[in-house]
Nucleic acid binder design. Structure first.
Lengths: 210, 210
DNA sequence: CGGTTTATGGTTCGATCGAACCATAACACG
DNA sequence: CGTGTTATGGTTCGATCGAACCATAAACCG
């Protein structure tokens, strides 16, 4: 069924236009006419593929979510098999940083949606899931590393995991504001990881897989 | 000149309406008519006190900034004289958390403005100053504490300060999303502070001064 | 080949937006 | 007392918005 492919491709094309506009001027610039112009299609098509404007916003966000998850998983797998817990945690945290244009725009779009997440009952579930999931993942990885002896038993795994993730999110904002270079932000994360992990278990700072 | 007082009070009244609307629905809900209704004044007054809509957005942000600085300084001074470096750093970091309604709304408004900071040349300077200033302040405090022996000499003060501030900012986002209670967030910060500072220099976790 | 669904463009409508314009109270000062 | 500045409300205009409506080309199906 080649129809389905066309259909999804069209939705994706339109969603990308929404992302670009939201990353620039915020959600208030995401008007049906502007999206249509940015996507190079007629305004009627937005109605056809997404319906009303709130549905367009929601749909574009859902596509961004699934796409982001895919990319993250790919980049983690790109570390090779058995990359070591240290490297995996590092990969998860770096995923939160805007280290390339794709992640830059994605995180920016999330910020543009943020305030809506709090009040809009349709948008809320799309954003409330990811962060705790990440934190639980890191907690699990740290606990695992503790059992392997790669992390000293006196570190509070949940507390450290929570602050590692929170710190990465904070660095994300600052990078978006242009106040940290990618190198500085990565160095700060590596500094914390070097503290949590025993030194000898650390991978050499291999460049972020693009 | 009681005129000036009235003038500023009016501007503040209008700015508060802008904040409330931005904290709910984001900047796209900050329309001149809605602000007028929320503030209980006529739309004409917004023009009179602020001019055009971009000027209103900018003015409301500036008022929020100065007000936020004042409040922060007050709360720090409320710690008493010579509260100890540990307590001061703690106070600075807690200022980033939405621990009361005032800070909740303020941080929310910043998020609503965030995307604009990146593209709007008028808005940008209002937001780019604060974060690095905070970080430098914490770095200075940690270095000072190091000289006093309250922090071990082998900790990297700038790196730890940067991650402390970044972590507090990350916790801020999660609290706004309702994923952390104030107690949990404060506990995470205290956990990090206990690690950076020598144990005996720590104040007992005195409740956040409201 | 004929009909039904799918996919697309164009147009129009009522609502709302930002901003300019017009009016006039209230108070200040000479 | 009068006159001018300050402070406020109301109205209107052109532009734009979201959404509904109308049309039709293309593709698929019996």
């Amino acid at each position: 069924m080649p129809r389905q492919v066309d259909h999804d491709a069209r939705r994706r094309q339109i969603a990308e236009a929404v992302w670009r506009l939201a990353a620039r001027g915020g959600l208030e610039d995401v008007t049906l006419r502007q999206v249509a112009a940015e996507a190079g299609v007629s305004a009627r098509l937005l109605q056809y593929y997404f319906g009303t404007r709130p549905q367009l916003l929601l749909g574009a966000l859902e596509i961004l979510n699934t796409e982001g998850e895919q990319r993250a998983r790919q980049r983690i797998e790109l570390l090779g098999d058995d990359p070591g817990t240290h490297a995996i945690v590092r990969g998860v945290l770096l995923e939160l940083l805007p280290l390339d244009e794709e992640r830059h725009d994605r995180h920016l779009v999330y910020v543009a949606y943020f305030v809506r997440f709090l009040s809009d009952p349709d948008l809320a579930p799309a954003a409330r899931q990811a962060p705790p999931a990440l934190e639980n993942l890191v907690t699990g990885l740290l606990t695992h590393a503790q059992e392997l002896g790669e992390v000293r038993p006196d570190v509070d795994a949940p507390a450290e995991a929570a602050y590692l993730v929170a710190g990465a999110e904070g660095l994300q904002s600052r990078m978006l504001l242009g106040q940290y270079t990618p190198e500085q932000a990565v160095a700060l994360i590596d500094h914390q990881l070097a503290r949590v992990f025993n030194a000898e278990t650390g991978e050499r700072p291999q460049p972020d897989s693009a």
